[in-house]
Design a binder for these strands. Structure first.
Lengths: 258, 258
DNA sequence: ACAAAAGTGTTCTATGTACACCCATGT
DNA sequence: ACATGGGTGTACATAGAACACTTTTGT
């Protein structure tokens, strides 16, 4: 693709040279990221940023930023944004969905390509940089009105979110819930994916599915889905120092690991 | 979202008025569509268009076009494009993926939001309009080198496709294969979704999965997944005039239907 | 002793797959 | 008669959910 011009006719080269990309009115393009973590209470959390400028000043939003045209893919833009916002590098992102309603941003037409990232909390550094006034983790909660988000005693609802971000987050959670049964997503949320117990993993599943799971059954599907497939390895060691029977330790063998 | 300005402070309104969207360099945005159909040989087909202009002149491409900024969402753009290309209206589209490599188009940075459409062949009108030199249905074939596409005696491979469209099509097929087991996608490909036999449906599944299925088992899962869920209704009629035992006729009860 | 988690076993049901077999129709 | 699809039934392996029970640690 990069070398397309090499195999071109003279005629076509001329066409490419004279092509004016500014001929048509274009929308802006951003890359946004839904960042999930597990907090100290073993609850699923999302990273939100309080907007310092218009529009939606003082509303909470998921991190994101404009794509640098001609220089980066939307995934690269999301990675750059993730790094600027959290100091995290080399985190695999999965594309969630692209939102493109003409009036989802009051300034202008903005097309947002949204990605999901799953990160262990300990790796998050909060950088108070750029246009971000404030960044915080919010627990994901459910009640009769649907979703809401809690950070300590502060509880925010979809009305406190900027743009269509509440829809975006809703979709991200739905997808995560579906994926977790057949993709090794949960391992990315472990404190230490190279040494963990089945119980620790179960807590992640329970928090994402928002219901408690049967120990015996969870165990069995762990063996079938991950251990016997080589996704996970038995370290042959036991946890120690906990207030209960020592547990077998496992290691996630996926991409890069730690 | 539309009425965001109504609840705005004077200060913010001024900001919005003075905001200049042209400040940043923007990529172009297109909406492309992978259109699947079943042909007269009960084989899965895709609609391709021979490009009349540069770049990739005389290469085959999936239909698509630029998004009209400020006027339409990418899905609306895809619908517009689908109508211009095939005369089809009110076909549900599902978003496939967004491709955004900076050099996937030699002219400039083009972000493409790609959709999938499933349409019965009889509804397709080929319009030789616009920049389309030629539109044709290609059978989807598999061999050692992977995918290829056949229309009569003409066989084309991924090298004959424009841009990264071979990757796009590959992904679309993979997704269709996965979806077909739990989403009622196959019904959209029936000649007549309001009166069909189980066998007709089975042909669609076989073509998409590219392997033959057991009659008895297909039947059972048809009953479980669709009939008992009310997705499909038994018409209480039998097919007639075929060279075999008359078959029960069913009706798809999904969105809009016919 | 008790809480907390680790770990085993059984039972029931649903699903996926393989296969054997008979039925009705047009040619 | 026979090809073509329509349709039924049986058998086996695996997956998921419910639940009962034992084990080992730290406090």
């Amino acid at each position: 693709m990069t070398d397309y011009r090499k195999n071109c006719s003279k005629e076509e080269l001329e066409f490419l040279e004279s092509y004016d990309p500014a001929r048509y009115e274009k929308p802006s393009v951003t890359a946004d990221i839904v960042i999930f973590t597990m907090d100290e209470d073993d609850e699923l959390c999302i990273l939100l940023i309080k907007r310092g400028g218009f529009p939606y000043r003082d509303h909470w939003a998921i991190p994101g930023g404009f794509l640098e045209a001609g220089k980066e893919s939307s995934e690269d833009a999301a990675k750059r944004e993730l790094y600027e916002e959290t100091g995290l590098k080399d985190i695999p992102l999965t594309q969630l969905y692209t939102f493109s309603d003409p009036d989802r941003d009051p300034r202008m037409h903005v097309v947002s390509v949204v990605y999901t990232a799953l990160v262990p909390k300990m790796k998050l550094e909060f950088k108070a940089g750029d246009d971000a006034k404030d960044a915080k983790l919010f627990k994901i909660r459910y009640d009769i009105d649907g979703l809401n988000f809690a950070s300590g005693s502060e509880i925010i609802t979809k009305e406190d979110l900027a743009f269509d971000h509440s829809e975006i987050i809703k979709l991200a959670i739905r997808r995560l819930r579906n994926r977790i049964d057949y993709e090794p997503d949960a391992f990315s949320l472990l404190k230490d994916s190279s040494s963990f117990t089945i119980y620790e993993l179960k807590l992640i599943y329970e928090s994402i599915k928002n219901k408690s799971l049967d120990t015996a059954n969870f165990r069995k599907s762990f063996m079938r889905n991950w251990l016997s497939e080589g996704v996970v390895r038995d370290r042959g060691e036991k946890s120690e120092g906990a207030g209960h029977k020592p547990a077998e330790l496992y290691e996630f063998m996926g991409k890069g690991g730690d």
